[in-house]
């Protein structure tokens, strides 16, 4: 499938599933994603995947963000499926998530401990946990689930294991902790870029319809200048997240250039999220600030996602450390990725 076809498929699948009033896991949409191969886009065929590239995943996740799709695509494909497969474990069916956490492992193989704010914890068929140098796969049915949510009303649950028997366990692949963090940040960046586009598109649509002083508010230069600024922020988020995905696709996550690109992208997307959400709400006026309007579906995601998987400040610290370590003569080679 070409990237254009993939993008069109993703857009149409998410548009069909769009329901402004629904919350929680979208079972129907998930089924469609599984049937179309979108659910495990980058996983190898042996793990039930479609063997797509990270650039394919970029197109998919960006579209998911734009349409506020209520399915754990990044969590299943980029995180849970990847970690289980990389640890040499069978990849469970259904929706997945992976988290890093501290679990106590008993000699009989059972595990105990608490995993906080697990994305979609209540809805997935398995949680893949990186704990120390081990990977364990847990079924939520073996855990106590304390439901929680982010500001976008997406499940962020606390899962408690008390002597739970894993579905599978194995050694973690080398560099798993770093790669898991980078994959999560990359997935989140792509979703942010999509949600930012969704907020901008809604704002432009609204500015063309809402009439004040006898003309659509989009005819006023003050509003145009604000929306153009939002446009530049959306473009920056798209460019950064897509470029990071491309670098990861070409060089792999172990490459320093990928680590730098993902860190810079998550930072940039977080900053864009803040600007775009602010401008979108300002343009929408009071109605956008209500439950009646669906602008909230994307702006609340911008607010939630900018702080998940490392906020701007966290990744700025990573980039800043790399830059200061590089020094005045190494800064430019760091930015170009060519030492």
């Amino acid at each position: 499938m070409s990237s254009t076809e993939l993008r069109e498929l993703a857009e149409s699948v998410f548009a069909d599933a769009y329901d402004r009033d629904a919350v929680g896991f979208d079972t129907g949409l998930w089924k469609t994603c599984e049937q179309t191969g979108l659910a495990r886009l980058t996983l190898p065929e042996a793990a039930g995947g479609s063997e797509g590239t990270l650039s394919d995943a970029a197109a998919l996740l960006e579209a998911a963000g734009a349409h506020a799709a209520r399915v754990p695509l990044a969590e299943t494909d980029l995180l849970g499926g990847w970690l289980a497969h990389a640890a040499g474990l069978p990849v469970p069916d259904g929706a997945l998530v992976a988290v890093a956490g501290d679990l106590d492992m008993a000699s009989d193989g059972t595990v105990s401990g608490t995993l906080t704010r697990v994305p979609w914890g209540r809805a997935v068929s398995a949680v893949v946990v990186l704990t120390g140098d081990r990977v364990v796969v847990l079924a939520p049915s073996a855990l106590t689930v304390h439901e929680g949510a982010n500001v976008a009303e997406e499940p962020r649950d606390t899962l408690v294991a008390s002597g739970a028997t894993p579905l599978a366990a194995g050694d973690a692949p080398a560099g798993a902790a770093d790669e898991l963090a980078l994959r999560a940040a990359l997935g989140r960046s792509l979703l942010l870029a999509g949600a930012a586009r969704g907020a901008l598109a809604r704002s432009i649509g609204y500015a063309g319809e809402r009439v004040q002083f006898g003309r659509p508010i989009g005819k006023f230069q003050a509003v145009q200048q604000q929306l153009a600024e939002a446009g530049s922020e959306v473009a920056a988020a798209s460019a950064a997240s897509a470029a990071a995905a491309r670098t990861a696709a070409d060089r792999g996550f172990a490459d320093d250039a990928t680590a730098f690109a993902v860190a810079a992208a998550k930072s940039r997307c977080g900053a864009s999220a803040t600007s775009v959400a602010r401008i979108a709400h300002q343009v929408h006026g009071a109605i956008g600030f209500t439950r009646e309007h669906d602008l909230r579906l994307v702006t609340t995601r911008l607010w939630a996602w900018r702080d998940e998987d490392g906020n701007d400040s966290h990744w700025n610290g990573v980039v800043g450390t790399r830059a200061l370590d590089a020094g005045p003569d190494g800064l430019w080679p760091l930015i170009t990725g060519t030492p």
Binding site: A236, A239, A240, A263, A264, S267, R268, V318, A323, L331
Partner: peptide, 27 residues
């Protein structure tokens, strides 16, 4: 970056500000 590198123990806030500038430039 050179000036800051010469100051021992560049603080977290400064690192983040440089990180923000460099992330924007990379983008």
């Amino acid at each position: 970056v050179g000036e800051l590198g010469r100051a021992a123990g560049t603080d977290a806030g400064t690192r983040r500000e440089i990180g923000a500038l460099v992330s924007r430039l990379w983008t």
